[in-house]
């Protein structure tokens, strides 16, 4: 009869450590660059050991960025509409002019019209990229804002706030620049798997009003403050805590 192995004397088999993740972070941070490797100190080594293994930067939520890009897109549309208006002339619609040209197109006329379109397109592209860059820069600020240490104030006046919540919360407003006529976007969770947003957020009479629903899951939520016609002007961060059993 075979004897059972004396497992008491056998050394424990070694196992791999659980990886922090198994796939690349190609997501929203990838669009604007990953800070975890993007800017090492001068002379630092990109591979091998690092004295400070550090804490990986957690991905920020996606939703608010999508909203901000929608905002940027609307600005671009407005810009294009303006360009179309200028290129089509005061008393002639774009389609009418195109139809006329198509019917009896002269090369010079076509080129002239094309040149106008070209400028519109170039302006659009430039503006779009500039806006994207602006969001990228602010994303960097936002990552700083989510750190546990108190963040430095930007020194730009924030709107006053009215907060209603039945559970403990922390709030923070960071303005990129001074802005009037603000609107607020819904706050989206940092956790990409958590899609229950805080939609009861608004700016009324210069006052930021946020109501946290009683059943809002704990977590960190972000949203943009948008200046009408000028794009993102600041961010709102709300951290919702679990309510303890005794209600404290």
């Amino acid at each position: 009869m075979k004897k059972p192995a004396n497992t008491a004397d056998a050394p424990a088999r070694l196992r791999r450590p659980e990886p922090e993740r198994t796939e690349p972070n190609r997501g929203i941070l990838g669009v604007f660059g990953q800070s975890s490797w993007g800017a090492p100190p001068q002379g630092s080594h990109p591979l091998g050991f690092d004295e400070d293994t550090g804490t990986p930067v957690e991905p920020t939520g996606h939703g608010f960025l999508d909203d901000s890009v929608q905002e940027a897109s609307e600005l671009v549309d407005a810009h294009i509409r303006q360009g179309l208006k200028e290129s089509a002339g005061a008393d002639e619609s774009l389609l009418g002019r195109m139809a006329a040209l198509y019917g009896s197109a002269q090369a010079n006329d076509l080129t002239a019209l094309a040149t106008q379109f070209t400028r519109v397109y170039a302006d659009m592209a430039t503006q779009w990229i500039d806006i994207a860059g602006s969001i990228r820069d602010q994303l960097g600020n936002l990552r700083g804002a989510t750190a546990s240490a108190p963040a430095a104030s930007t020194g730009i006046a924030s709107p006053s706030m009215v907060l209603r919540a039945s559970k403990p919360v922390e709030t923070r407003v960071d303005m990129f620049r001074a802005a009037g006529s603000l609107s607020a976007q819904p706050l989206t969770s940092e956790d990409a798997n958590q899609d229950l947003r805080i939609t009861t957020v608004s700016v009324e009479n210069g006052q930021l009003r946020i109501t946290i629903p009683a059943d809002q899951p704990a977590g960190t939520y972000h949203g943009l403050l948008v200046e009408k016609g000028a794009g993102p002007a600041g961010t709102v961060t709300v951290r919702v805590f679990e309510t303890s059993e005794d209600g404290s």
Binding site: R21, P24, G30, S36, L47, P56
Partner: peptide, 11 residues
């Protein structure tokens, strides 16, 4: 190690 963030281009 190395930290995944230090593998250039992984992310």
């Amino acid at each position: 190690a190395p930290n995944l963030g230090h593998i250039v281009g992984y992310d």
